[in-house]
Amino acid sequence: MIDARGFSCPQPVLMVQQAVKRDAPKTLTVLVDDQCAVGNIRRFAASQGYQVRVTEQGEEFSLELTK
């Protein structure tokens, strides 16, 4: 799981990019607290062939990436 809460763009999507590059995981959970990061990660994950499910929890978002 990646906890990218509090980091500003582009760090959250960079953290995801590095995890994908390193381990090529089948599933990955990412926590963020910023709509901009949600959009960036969603676009990047889709470009890498992941399906993305976003759940809003109060002021935070949990993104489930699955391949």
Partner: peptide, 19 residues
């Protein structure tokens, strides 16, 4: 739209995101 002059070039270089 998260419009940003620096972010545009940065995203193109880092993530091949050209929006």
């Amino acid at each position: 739209s998260r419009f940003c002059m620096a972010g545009g070039i940065r995203n193109a270089v880092m993530f091949r995101d050209f929006g």
